[in-house]
C-alpha cells in the first residue's frame, strides 16, 4: 500500500526533470538518509533540530515540524522540500508557489529502505541509494542471523516515564519502527497484542506480563554509575518481574539510537547485545 502510494506520488510530483540542486529538509532523519545516498551536497538548509551528519551544522535552519519558516524556505529558492506528512499547510503553500516537495511519514523498519530508494530516484542517486539500502538491509539481516534460533526474551521496550518513579510509563507496542527494531534484535515484544506504535503501561500490566527484559531508552549522552542507578532504582519496586529479579533492566542511552535512518543498525546492534549478551 505504502509503495503504491509512493509510486503514485512520484509519478504525480516528479515531472521527469533534472535532479534537484537545492534541497531543504525539514525532517532530521531524512536529512541523514539524503547524506547517506550521496545527495548531501544538494542540501542547502535543514530544520532547527538537525545535527547529523556534522556537515549540516553549518547549514541555515528554517524552523521545524510545527513551525516551519515558510518565508525563509521560499527565499532560499529550493527545488525540493522534504516535508513531514502532517505539514499540510506548508505543503499547500509550496504548491501555490510551485515548489515540489517530498511527503515523508515515519513507518516501520522497512520503510527506511523504501524511503532511501524513493529519494534516490527523486534526487538522481538511484544507484547510490540502492547500495545504501542494501548495506543497511545487510546490517539488519546480519543481526537477525546472529540472533536466529536463540530464545527470544519477552521484552518491554520503555521510551518514557516520569523521572524517579514508575508513573506514566510509555512503551513501544505491537507495531511501528521501535517494535520492528526490537524484533530484529531478537526480542519478543510483551505488548505484541496492542495494535499501536506506543502505549501507556500500568504497573499492574508490567507485573502481569512479567517481561524477561526491560529495555529502557534514555536520551542522555552519558550516564555514570550513579545516574544509572537512579534510572534503574524505581524498577526495583516490581521485584517479582523476572527482568527486575534477574537484573535485566537495561538502559540504552546515547544519541541517534532510535533515528529511522542509516544509523539504525547501531541501535539494533545495541538492543541485540542487551538481549543476547
Amino acid at each position: 500500500m505504502k509503495k503504491l502510494l509512493l509510486t503514485l506520488l512520484l509519478t504525480v510530483a516528479v515531472s521527469a526533470q533534472a535532479p534537484p540542486r537545492r534541497i531543504i529538509s525539514l525532517v532530521p532523519n531524512v536529512t541523514e538518509i539524503l547524506f547517506a545516498i550521496g545527495a548531501g551536497p544538494q542540501v542547502v538548509a535543514v530544520s532547527n533540530y538537525d545535527v547529523e551528519p556534522p556537515e549540516v551544522r553549518s547549514l541555515p535552519t528554517v524552523g521545524a515540524l510545527v513551525d516551519p519558516d515558510t518565508e525563509k524556505i521560499i527565499s532560499l529558492r529550493p527545488d525540493l522540500v522534504i516535508t513531514y506528512g502532517s505539514q499540510t499547510e506548508l505543503q499547500a503553500q509550496l504548491k501555490r508557489v510551485s515548489i515540489p516537495f517530498f511527503d515523508y511519514r515515519h513507518g516501520g523498519l522497512d520503510h527506511i529502505m523504501v524511503t532511501m530508494r524513493a529519494l534516490g530516484e527523486r534526487t538522481g542517486h538511484v544507484d547510490q541509494a540502492d547500495k545504501a539500502a542494501r548495506t543497511l538491509q545487510a546490517g539488519i539481516d546480519a543481526v537477525k542471523t546472529r540472533v536466529a534460533g536463540k530464545p527470544r526474551p519477552r521484552t518491554l521496550l520503555v521510551f518514557g516515564r516520569e523521572p524517579g518513579s514508575l508513573r506514566n510509563i510509555y512503551a513501544s507496542a505491537g507495531r511501528g519502527f521501535l517494535h520492528d527494531m526490537l524484533i530484529a534484535a531478537g526480542g519478543e515484544d510483551v505488548l505484541n497484542d496492542i495494535e499501536k506504535e506506543s502505549a501507556q503501561v500500568s504497573t499492574e500490566m508490567i507485573l502481569a506480563r512479567k517481561p524477561d527484559v526491560i529495555l529502557e531508552l534514555n536520551a542522555a549522552n552519558r550516564l555514570n554509575d550513579a545516574d544509572l542507578k537512579a534510572v534503574v532504582d524505581p524498577w526495583m519496586t516490581l521485584s517479582s518481574v523476572p527482568a527486575v529479579r534477574n537484573k535485566r533492566v537495561i538502559v540504552l542511552n546515547g544519541p541517534g539510537l532510535t533515528v529511522p535512518g542509516p544509523r539504525v543498525v547501531d541501535g539494533i546492534e545495541k538492543m541485540a547485545k542487551a538481549l543476547h549478551p
Partner: peptide, 15 residues
C-alpha cells in the same frame, strides 16, 4: 517470599 509473589505485588504495589 515477596519477590516471588506476583499476586501480592499486583495488590500492594499496583492497586
Amino acid at each position: 517470599p515477596w519477590h516471588d509473589n506476583v499476586d501480592a505485588q499486583i495488590f500492594f504495589v499496583a492497586r
